[in-house]
Each structure stands twice: as C-alpha cells, then as structure tokens.
C-alpha cells in the first residue's frame, strides 16, 4: 500500500515542517533553484485570500506558491 505523504497545503496556518522530496521534476527544478531544497524547514504563513495559492517562508525567504507547486513538496511526517 502506498503511503500518502503530507504536502504543504496540509499544513495548518503558521505550522512548519521539513521538506522531503518533490513529486514533479519540472516544478522541482524551479523550486530548488529558488532555494526550496529537500530537508529545509518550510512554514505555511497563510493561504491566499481567494485560495489556490500559499504564502510560505523558507529560511527567512518569503515565497508565493500555487496550489500544485505547494502540493508537489512532500513533507516529513
């Protein structure tokens, strides 16, 4: 049975977790280049007012991620 990992949209507001891996190679290229690496702490600051995007913080850098970008980041349990 496949275990479902938590991803960034599963975080509660102001909750943070360590990143584990990415599900999509194209998005992984973009995200890693911006410093979202496996093993860093990512915090969900707040969802976008109309939804489908997230304001996150990684190592003091603030990023806006779209739903599928955020959902491509697998988190440690």
């Amino acid at each position: 049975m496949q275990r479902r990992y938590r991803t960034v949209p599963d975080l509660k507001q102001n909750e943070s977790a360590l990143t584990l891996a990415f599900t999509d190679p194209t998005l992984a290229g973009k995200l890693t280049a911006m410093g979202v690496l496996p093993g860093v702490r990512i915090e969900l600051v707040r969802p976008a007012p109309f939804g489908e995007a997230y304001y996150v913080k990684v190592d003091g850098v603030r990023l806006a991620l779209r739903e599928e970008e955020a959902a491509s980041i697998l988190l440690e349990a």
């Binding site: 973009k30 995200l31 603030r62 990023l63």
Partner: peptide, 11 residues
C-alpha cells in the same frame, strides 16, 4: 508550456 507562480515576496 509549464505555468508557474513561484514568486519571491520581497521585504
């Protein structure tokens, strides 16, 4: 084409 938001929010 892939589409991105992935945007840095500057201070």
């Amino acid at each position: 084409d892939p589409s991105y938001l992935a945007l840095e929010l500057p201070v």
